[in-house]
C-alpha cells in the first residue's frame, strides 16, 4: 500500500499542504479559519525558563497536527492565514487510501512532504 506522494511536476495547483512543525506555535489560526474544520491541533503549555522575567511565563508547544485530506477542500486558506509560514503548498499529490482514516495525515507525513 503506497503512502508516499508522487511528484507530479510544478503545475499542480492542488498539491498537498505540508507543515513545518518547528515553525508552528499551535496558535490555531488555521484551525479556526478552515471552512471544513479538517485541521486538528493539540498542544500543551510549559513553563518558559528563558529570560529573567519576574512573573512566570509559559510557552505553548505543539503536540499533534492532523489534516484530514478526506475533508480538505484544498482552498489554501490555512496556508494564506498562517502567521508563521508553517504551512506551505507542495507540488505533490497525496495518494489514495483503502480506508477513510488513511486520508488523515499527522506531523510525520506533513513534515516529510515539506522536505522533499
Amino acid at each position: 500500500m503506497p503512502t508516499d506522494p508522487i511528484p507530479t511536476g510544478e503545475a499542480v495547483p492542488h498539491g498537498v499542504i505540508a507543515l513545518d512543525p518547528g515553525a508552528c506555535p499551535a496558535c490555531l489560526v488555521c484551525v479556526r479559519e478552515c471552512p471544513v474544520w479538517c485541521i486538528t491541533i493539540t498542544s500543551h503549555d510549559e513553563p518558559d525558563a528563558s529570560g529573567d522575567d519576574r512573573r512566570p511565563r509559559t510557552k505553548t508547544l505543539l503536540d499533534t497536527f492532523e489534516i484530514d485530506f478526506g475533508l480538505c477542500m484544498y482552498c489554501g486558506i490555512c496556508v494564506d492565514t498562517c502567521p508563521f509560514d508553517a504551512l506551505s503548498w507542495q507540488p505533490l499529490t497525496n495518494y489514495p487510501a483503502d480506508l477513510a482514516q488513511g486520508l488523515k495525515h499527522g506531523i510525520g507525513e506533513l513534515d516529510g512532504w515539506r522536505q522533499r
Binding site: H14, F69, Y74, T93, P96, A100, L103
Partner: peptide, 29 residues
C-alpha cells in the same frame, strides 16, 4: 456525508478535485 456510509469503498482518492494522475495512481494501486 461520504459514499462509504452506503457502499464498501475499495479506494479513497483525496483531492478537491484530485488531479488526473491521482486516478491513474488509484487504479494502478
Amino acid at each position: 456525508k461520504g459514499i462509504d456510509q452506503f457502499l464498501p469503498v475499495a479506494r479513497y482518492v483525496p483531492g478537491c478535485a484530485p488531479p488526473p494522475e491521482a486516478l491513474v495512481s488509484a487504479l494502478l494501486d
